[in-house]
Design a binder for these strands. Structure first.
Lengths: 143, 143
DNA sequence: ATTAAATTTGACAAAAATAATCAGGAAAAG
DNA sequence: CTTTTCCTGATTATTTTTGTCAAATTTAAT
């Protein structure tokens, strides 16, 4: 049960965009560099995020990506579901092989609920806020 | 974030063994057939379960596998951890790439806690009991 | 008793399928 | 004509599946 790189990279990408929401597009290359991952790979992860309408792209010089939805309207669950496809994939009871066990299905469902709960418990805006706070140690208000 | 077949198949295998705990070894082939999966593949999944001491094998005719630990002493978490390696793998904060985000790490940790909680909340014995109950609709006590 | 045969796990390798990563150049925008 | 996203294919790595034969154990036969 591993979280694929798609979700991890994708979510980090989205949080970076959330941090600079409203200040114009950001370069894929720049984000890939500071996050330490391949520009080409990230370029592919980004496609479904665009098709889903979460981000928009501007080509050419001064271009890049930016959120097209307010970060308070997006949760990690949205991002992960989009990039990961199915969370905790398992055969549904009906499709199961003859002798397979309904109990495991029930357990995976519990798991799905737990995971969904955590991922939907916070918004990109909140995560972005935390990241500015905690990572850069820069005070939010200076009087 | 997918649950690999290793965990799913392995757990189902263990529940089958739990159902017939104390009644002698069960054939891998038979279990693979009723569960609808490859005997050879299951044969490989089973190795770590054996090395960890959860099951023991008897070769030759009348042989098979059986639990060597009481099913009330094993949780799905044990099985999944053993077969899956790391649950929800993600870079630790220290190993992270320079610009990567501590917030995502925190989120994955929350996720790990949630998943761990669910998987440790029940034992193989309980799961096996449920499966006899709910799948076969056979009453537990007939008076 | 001894040997032969059948059954079942065990070890190891190969193949197939899927996922992750990288690369080249076309298309759009300034 | 430079920058940057976009499209498409190639490469590599990982996971899943299949195949072959050896080792251990029981059952049957002589």
């Amino acid at each position: 049960m591993k979280l694929s790189t798609r979700s991890r990279y994708g979510l980090r990408f989205m949080i970076v965009l959330a941090r600079s929401f409203g200040t114009g597009p950001r370069l894929l290359k720049e984000i890939a560099d500071t996050e330490g991952l391949s520009e080409k790979y990230l370029g592919q992860l980004v496609i479904p995020l665009k098709s889903a309408g979460y981000i928009s792209a501007v080509r050419g010089s001064r271009g890049g990506y930016e959120l097209s939805v307010d970060p308070s309207e997006i949760t990690p669950l949205d991002v992960v579901l989009l990039l990961e496809g199915e969370l905790i994939s398992h055969e549904k009871a009906g499709q199961d092989s003859p002798g397979s066990l309904k109990v495991t299905t029930a357990l995976w469902d519990q798991l799905l609920d737990a995971v969904t709960g955590v991922l939907a418990s916070v918004t990109l805006k909140e995560l972005a806020g935390r990241s500015i706070d905690e990572e850069h140690q820069s005070p939010m208000f200076v009087i």
